[in-house]
């Protein structure tokens, strides 16, 4: 899993830098387009992912002490944060699409929509992984001596969070 996480970080890293350096060629366009984004939605989404990560930390802590039930509850809470993130993101995207914006509109929107969608798919994958872990935890499949599965799922979820922590200021805030 860690090989996979590193590969993912590499891909996102390359895209972040591509954004930063593509921006140097057309700062005005990037700044102007950035102002059209819903910054508040991005802010709430950051809070959601951070909280999701925190809940996953609590879930790992619970199972470490052998509490399957509490672990399951925190995992569900984390997934709820993820689901809320996805809903908000969809609202944000549909607003842009209704405004007639696509990946071909300009380079900024190519990155905003492309990277956003790519990250979106990672949240979906993270939810699928957490869902599988939750199901197993709910059935009492992990114990204090054996919870590697929870830790692996948690690591992936934190990676998705970490990427967003860089993505949010980069695309929504910095100008």
């Amino acid at each position: 899993m860690w090989c996979f996480i590193l590969a993912e970080l590499l891909v996102f890293g390359v895209f972040f830098l591509a954004y930063a350096f593509a921006r140097t060629h057309d700062v005005e366009l990037f700044n102007a387009s950035q102002l059209e984004l819903d910054r508040t939605s991005g802010f709430i989404n950051t809070m959601l992912l951070i909280s999701g990560s925190y809940f996953v930390v609590l879930a790992v802590d619970r199972i470490r002490h052998g509490h399957s039930r509490a672990c399951t509850r925190w995992l569900i809470a984390a997934m709820a944060c993820g689901a809320a993130f996805l809903v908000l993101k969809l609202v944000e995207f549909s607003g842009k699409i209704e405004a007639g914006i696509s990946m071909s509109t300009n380079t900024f929107y190519m990155f905003y929509l492309g990277l956003g969608f790519f990250h979106f798919m990672h949240v979906v994958l993270g939810m699928v992984i957490l869902g599988a872990v939750t199901l197993k935890a709910w059935r009492g499949g992990y114990r204090a001596s054996d919870y590697a599965g929870v830790e692996t799922g948690a690591a992936y979820w934190h990676m998705v969070d970490l990427v967003w922590i860089v993505l949010f200021p980069l695309i929504y805030l910095l100008n």
């Binding site: 590193l6 970080l9 890293g13 930063a20 921006r23 860089v166 980069l170």
Partner: peptide, 12 residues
Amino acid sequence: WLLLVLGLIGYA
């Protein structure tokens, strides 16, 4: 990774 990406973003 974090340092490199943020550093280069800052530079750009």
